[in-house]
Design a protein around this nucleic acid. Structure first.
Lengths: 203, 203
DNA sequence: ATTAATAATTGACCGGGGTCATTTTTTAAG
DNA sequence: CTTAAAAAATGACCCCGGTCAATTATTAAT
């Protein structure tokens, strides 16, 4: 029969994640060293790897939790009626995702291209993001010739693309919001766009 | 005055990249170790880092060259008239990009989110991809309410998204081509879409 | 040729992630 | 209690990317 989880286990795990969060607050995600984590937690190095498969797994958990807290705030918004509303809702999350290059890399690695057998925390947040956005888009003022879920997936694709381009020195003259706005208008309002473009061409 | 590049330099560099290509042929990109590269090239470890900034820079060059060879073939295609034509042209490249998780990770790191100060080989290929596809889409049978370049960028975003999702065990029941086809139909043919693609995807 | 300046190479060394045989602690059974 | 099995923790060790002061090779000028 399987034994219950020991109190000790939970305590050690908590000490490790607490230490990690503390280090991140001081040095950023990029600056985290496992040796420093175990030192502050007062355990041996091997103990860390008994609790987390590797460094990435810890990052997955910590960054996933952070993304979740942004999604909590996004979830309670009323469905956006315009692209600008949508951007207002999503941008805080996207800014966190691009707070550090390392963070964005970790997110990319875990978002869909998850090496792990089971789905991890960050991958979960992507699914949740899809669900929240798809809910918004059902019966909204945007195109409805394709499923809301497909639209939500497209929003994710364009969000990631926008962040990636903005990390590049050559492309980051355009603010994230502006770039994403252009993508989302073309994606969510293909009709109104042509009208706008046409009238612009006429003028 | 700046001195000319020594013959020795070119020779050493060639020996290093040759060794690297050989190792990749045997063990894959993931299996490449710098120690093995320098051993086969018959030079010291430090020499490698005098020629390449780091391991990623070598990968950037090798993978970038590979992508370029796919683009060479893509470039000579006649502009696609249908989504299927487009997929036929692009899929070989996308399959290379997803041949190894590690390769896809390297590509993502270098595509736009380039840490490097200057633009690297892989980032160049992304720009080239954009240019080729934008050229195709100008005056094509697809939507023309937005610029061809924006359409090309969207194709890239959806390509990356499709590959990422396909690496995830949970999502890879849908073939890459099928998934991308759905995205591209919605992106490039927002009008015709409504009835056709939706019922097709369900079937 | 000699020499001074520059370029290329070397390999011992370091940092930090990850492993694993061994030891210590906890738990359940007699 | 005692004890045997399971769980948790330990830290010396390995792997491998990356560094750098010292050495060797090349070039240009006299």
């Amino acid at each position: 029969m399987a034994r219950a989880v020991q109190q000790r286990t939970l305590k050690t795990r908590a000490r490790l994640t607490d230490a990690a969060r503390q280090i991140i607050a001081e040095y950023g995600y990029e600056g985290l060293r496992i040796e420093e984590v175990v030192k502050r937690a007062g355990v041996a190095k091997g103990t860390f790897f008994a609790h987390f498969h590797d460094k990435d797994a810890l990052m997955d958990i910590l960054i996933g939790a952070e993304i979740d807290s942004y999604l909590d705030r996004i979830e309670v918004c009323s469905p956006p009626r315009t692209i600008d509303d949508l951007l207002d809702a999503l941008l805080p999350l996207l800014e966190f995702m691009s707070c550090e290059r390392y963070v964005f890399d970790v997110i990319l690695r875990h978002s869909g291209a998850a090496a792990c057998d089971a789905i991890g925390p960050i991958a979960e947040t992507f699914a949740r993001h899809d669900a929240v956005v798809a809910e918004w888009l059902a019966d909204g003022p945007f195109r409805n010739d394709v499923s809301p879920d497909l639209l939500a997936q497209g929003i994710q694709a364009f969000s990631v693309q926008s962040i990636a381009l903005n990390f590049c020195a050559i492309n980051n003259t355009v603010p994230l919001r502006t770039r994403l706005s252009e993508y989302l208008t073309a994606w969510l309002l293909p009709d109104s766009q042509s009208a706008a473009a046409h009238s612009a061409a006429r003028a």
